[in-house]
Simulated assay, not measured.
Amino acid sequence: MMTDWLIVLGALIAIIGGVLFIIETFKVSWLWCVGCILLSPIAIVFIIRHWEVSKKPVLLQLAGFGIVGVGMLVIDSM
């Protein structure tokens, strides 16, 4: 039961990071925003070119995925 909550918490953190990432792309340019939404590889280019802007949302997403991964490992070991 606790692992379910861990997975849900991690997913919510990752979703919040994703939304913040889209907001940051829009702050730079609406074209970056549209490009990141429609074509995933453009998001990688944006992250590389605008690391200072995208650092917090990307790390938040990674933390969320990490929490989900830990929850999955705990479920697997049960």
Rank of each mutant, 00 (worst) to 15 (best):
I42Y: 13
G69C: 00
C33G: 04
R49K: 11
F65K: 10
I44L: 15
D4K: 06
I16R: 14
W5E: 05
T25L: 07
W51A: 01
L60F: 04
L20D: 12
G35F: 07
S77A: 15
T3K: 10
L62P: 04
W5C: 00
K27V: 04
V74M: 09
F26G: 15
V28P: 09
L60G: 00
W51D: 07
I22M: 15
L9I: 05
F21W: 08
L73I: 06
L20C: 08
D76Y: 11
C33K: 07
K56D: 09
G71W: 01
G10P: 12
I15D: 00
V45K: 05
Q61H: 02
S77R: 09
I47F: 04
W32K: 10
G35A: 09
L62I: 11
I67N: 10
I67C: 03
L20P: 02
I42A: 09
L9W: 09
G18V: 06
L20G: 00
G71F: 01
I75T: 10
W32L: 10
S40N: 10
A14Y: 05
M1Q: 13
F46S: 13
I44N: 11
I48K: 02
V8R: 15
H50Y: 12
A43R: 04
I42D: 06
S77N: 08
G17K: 05
M1T: 10
F65L: 15
L60S: 00
I75E: 15
T3G: 03
I75Q: 15
M72R: 00
V34H: 03
G17V: 04
I47N: 03
G10S: 04
L38D: 08
V28I: 15
E24H: 09
E24D: 13
A63E: 01
I75W: 09
L20Y: 01
V19I: 14
V8D: 10
G66V: 03
T3S: 14
V19L: 13
M1G: 14
K55Y: 03
A43Q: 12
I15P: 03
L59N: 07
I13K: 02
G71Y: 03
L12G: 03
S54T: 11
F46M: 14
M72L: 14
V53Y: 01
G17A: 08
G69P: 05
S77L: 13
A11M: 15
S54N: 08
I37M: 13
Q61R: 06
L73E: 03
A43F: 06
F65G: 04
A11S: 15
T3W: 11
V28A: 13
I7N: 12
A14E: 04
E52W: 02
L20A: 12
M78Y: 07
K56W: 12
V53L: 08
G66A: 05
P57H: 02
A14C: 04
V68A: 05
W51I: 03
W5K: 07
I16T: 10
S29C: 04
I42W: 13
T3M: 12
A11Q: 11
M1I: 14
M2D: 10
S54D: 01
L62A: 14
G69E: 00
I42H: 11
L6R: 08
D76I: 12
